[in-house]
């Protein structure tokens, strides 16, 4: 293994949120870490902290991660009051200690939103996002024979725009950053992707109505254009998607033919 002796190190103080369970009272626990390599990732720094905690016989700190390369959406920390920390367009796992200075005190908290209850310490339950998806985030295609993939041509710019929206990783930073805890950016990303593509047309109206309704049911707040979500989003999902979402919702809600069919099992439209 490569020697790291040449790398720079810093000393830091940490204030980490500890909370036994969903209903327990949480509190900040303080720790000190010496000789933290600046080339370490933020989560690797927490790994080191956890080894220290375990060796002292205490219950380890719970925080989530999986891919550690910014794509799975599992990591989810408020660092210094910012969702995913101070670097724009990056997830917590893509944050490096070189973003902090020697002697800094770093505060680490979980996502805070009614719809994302704390499970333990820094882990929150984000299954509300799944339920929004369930309500309509799909095209309805079943497994089986389909038209040849090149049968419907899709202009490159359209495909690219759909891909921009589809890049959402479902991390929830948009919710955590929003003073209203709105899930509009997340929902709008899926709605936009499918509204742009020919494959998403058949159930376009049903989709937006059901997804927005579910979002409200989950206890997410409404969007008042504060734009904090876009700033926090690690995938730079554009707030324009929310404008599209609002438009799509309005169009669908106004469509009388849809109203009539909405109650039926297949949802009409």
């Amino acid at each position: 293994m490569m020697s790291t002796s040449k790398s720079k190190t810093i000393h830091i103080r940490l204030r980490v949120w500890r909370q036994e369970s969903r209903d327990a009272q949480g509190f900040f626990e303080e720790h000190e870490l010496k000789n933290v390599l600046v080339d370490m990732s933020f989560l690797e720094m927490l790994d080191v902290l956890n080894e220290q905690i375990i060796k002292s016989g205490k219950r380890p700190l719970e925080y989530e991660s999986d891919c550690r390369e910014g794509i799975c959406g599992t990591c989810s920390l408020m660092v210094q009051g910012q969702a995913h920390g101070p670097i724009r367009g990056a997830t917590t796992c893509q944050l490096y200690m070189r973003s902090f200075v020697d002697g800094e005190t770093i505060t680490i908290e979980p996502w805070r939103a009614k719809a994302f209850p704390v499970v333990r310490d820094l882990v929150t339950d984000r299954r509300a996002f799944d339920r929004i998806q369930m309500a309509g985030g799909y095209t309805g295609a079943k497994t089986g024979p389909h038209a040849d993939a090149n049968a419907i041509l899709i202009p490159k710019d359209l495909a690219d725009r759909a891909m921009d929206a589809a890049a959402c990783i479902g991390c929830g930073a948009c919710v955590a950053a929003c003073p209203n805890a709105s899930a509009s950016l997340f929902t709008s990303a899926k709605v936009t992707q499918l509204a742009l593509l020919p494959q998403g047309q058949a159930d376009r109206k049903r989709r937006v109505i059901r997804m927005v309704d579910q979002m409200d049911k989950e206890g997410f707040g409404s969007c008042s254009n504060l734009q904090e979500c876009e700033a926090a989003c690690p995938k730079k999902i554009s707030i324009q998607n929310i404008a599209i979402l609002k438009q799509e919702y309005l169009k669908a809600a106004l469509a009388a033919d849809f109203r009539a069919g909405m109650g039926s099992a297949d949802g009409g439209a």
């Binding site: 799909y138 095209t139 038209a147 993939a149 090149n150 041509l153 495909a159 992707q193």
Partner: peptide, 22 residues
């Protein structure tokens, strides 16, 4: 070959050429 057709029908935004083809 069926896999690609299946994924396109789900709205998977594969990269495309200017011609609109995959």
């Amino acid at each position: 070959t069926s896999i690609i057709d299946q994924c396109v029908s789900q709205g998977v935004p594969f990269a495309r050429e200017y011609s609109g083809e995959l």
